[in-house]
Amino acid sequence: MSVFKDAGHLFRFAGLFVLAFLVFLVVRHYVVPKSFGEYGHYRGAAMGEIAAHPAKFAGHDTCEACHSDVADKKSKGKHAHVNCEACHGALFQRLPNPEQPRPNLYKRFVALIIPPAPPDSPLLRHAEDPSSVKPEMPDTAVLCARCHTASAAKPKGFPQVAPADHSNGVPCETCHQPHNPAIDAGGAK
């Protein structure tokens, strides 16, 4: 008996351990997200949240639903497989974030420890409101040159020209209609 009496303080220490472990288990039960482990060692709900992000490129099907005339024209030419948004940009544009006032010292200190989430800016949706939200008309001098400027680095079979020699500053669309660029396809408007 006296062994237990003389080792009593050890049991107290062990008791602290057990207590801490029990508290840990209880806390763990409450803080681990519910969907954790649903599919693997991660929060199953995360996939749904990631999948719920809004898309900005709507895909050519969405454009073609209305712009069937352009789709028809494009399908007959060399740009048949170039998707609408490759040149026109994403159908949904994000507005630049509104100017934020500089946070006060306290907020900046807190932000050092808990980084704030960046504010989300609204999406402009041309497909929902075609008349008021319009994608910008691309500048052909930049747009065409991006792909078709001659460079030794580009694949040899790809059509490419040195813009200065080729057109001497005349805009591309004078001769080439972007949706069907071959000149005999009636480039000049």
């Binding site: 490129f57 709507a58 740009h79 497989h81 998707n83 490759a86 792909c147």
Partner: peptide
Amino acid sequence: LTTACCEACPTG
């Protein structure tokens, strides 16, 4: 939908 990079790639 396909990915944004695939959607925007002009040469496939």
